[in-house]
């Protein structure tokens, strides 16, 4: 089995050690977090490693944004994979969980985000007026 680690943040060696992976066997691809906003690029990148076990590496999964999108990219590229970190935490791709739990939650997040964006545009505009009028 071959392994590829898309390194979003953190130290590849530490991530490998924490997750009991053999560092020498892993192909490491450094990936800037900003790149995650480019679905075509990420999906084709994952597809290039067909047959590999795919990992996304971070310093600490608790603070890694866009994890649902990473799983959607894995789905679109017909792969499975795991988001792993320097602390040994793992967030595994699971199709059932993605469909039944994570995608509905993403939908809630979309709606909530739209509400927040509208609300805070009004609120912050008013605050700006209040605090800067003199």
């Amino acid at each position: 089995m071959k392994f590829v680690l898309f390194l979003l943040s953190g130290n590849a060696q530490k991530i490998a050690d924490a997750n009991k992976l053999n560092f020498e066997e892993i192909q490491i691809i450094k990936l800037d977090e900003k790149e995650l906003s480019k679905p075509t690029k990420i999906v084709s990148l994952i597809k290039q490693f067909k047959g590999f076990k795919v990992y996304f590496g971070t310093i600490d999964n608790r603070f890694q944004r866009f994890q649902t999108f990473i799983k959607i990219y894995l789905l679109l590229s017909c792969s499975s994979g795991i988001i792993i970190d320097e602390l040994g935490q793992q967030n595994k791709f699971n199709l059932t969980r993605l469909i039944l739990q994570e995608l509905p939650l993403l939908l809630v997040e979309v709606v909530y985000s739209i509400v927040l964006i509208i609300y805070y545009h009004i609120k912050i505009y008013l605050l700006k007026w209040k605090y800067t009028r003199n």
Partner: peptide, 13 residues
């Protein structure tokens, strides 16, 4: 922990 998939929005609340 809910707002983790869109840029910036998590900072508003």
């Amino acid at each position: 922990k809910l707002l983790r998939n869109f840029p910036e929005v998590l900072t508003f609340p």
